[in-house]
Computed example of a mutant assay.
Amino acid sequence: MKKSIRLLMVLVGLLSFSSSSFALSESEAEDMADLTAVFVYLKNDCGYQELPDAQIRKALVFFAQQNRWDLSNYSSYNMKSLGEDSYKDLSGIAISNSQKCKALARDSLSLLAYVR
């Protein structure tokens, strides 16, 4: 009886571990924060104020779905802090703002076209 209980406990532990392994990882959360920072930068520093926040949110979810990321634990990360750090990093890149804006727009605005 004790062996079957131990075996059951081990199986439950393994199942709970394996199911949590599909949740959003720290690096994936950082990638989401980086992409969010790109859109915020485009809005605040590149003249794209007209980008609707709802469309940006849809693009972020679309990006996560395309990468097969499980967002069920998204709220367990301090996304505001991660996003602020990403925005500071992006702002600190030592190239002209116009070059930075062109590159960011070229590489990320197409994502918004998928979620219109």
Rank of each mutant, 00 (worst) to 15 (best):
M1L: 10
M1K: 11
K3M: 06
S4I: 15
R6Q: 09
L7G: 02
L8D: 03
L11P: 01
L11V: 13
V12S: 07
G13N: 02
L14H: 02
S16R: 00
S18F: 11
S20I: 01
S20A: 10
S21V: 09
F22V: 09
F22Y: 12
F22S: 07
E28K: 10
A29M: 08
A29S: 12
A29E: 10
E30F: 05
M32G: 01
A33E: 05
T36H: 07
V38L: 08
F39P: 03
V40L: 13
N44R: 13
G47E: 04
E50P: 00
L51T: 07
P52R: 05
D53I: 04
Q55E: 13
Q55Y: 03
I56H: 03
I56Y: 02
A59E: 06
F62K: 04
Q66W: 02
Q66S: 10
R68K: 15
S72G: 09
G83K: 01
D85W: 00
S86R: 13
G92D: 14
G92T: 06
S96W: 09
S98N: 12
K100L: 14
C101A: 06
C101I: 05
A105G: 13
A105Q: 05
R106C: 01
R106G: 01
D107H: 04
S108L: 00
L109G: 05
A113I: 05
Y114W: 06
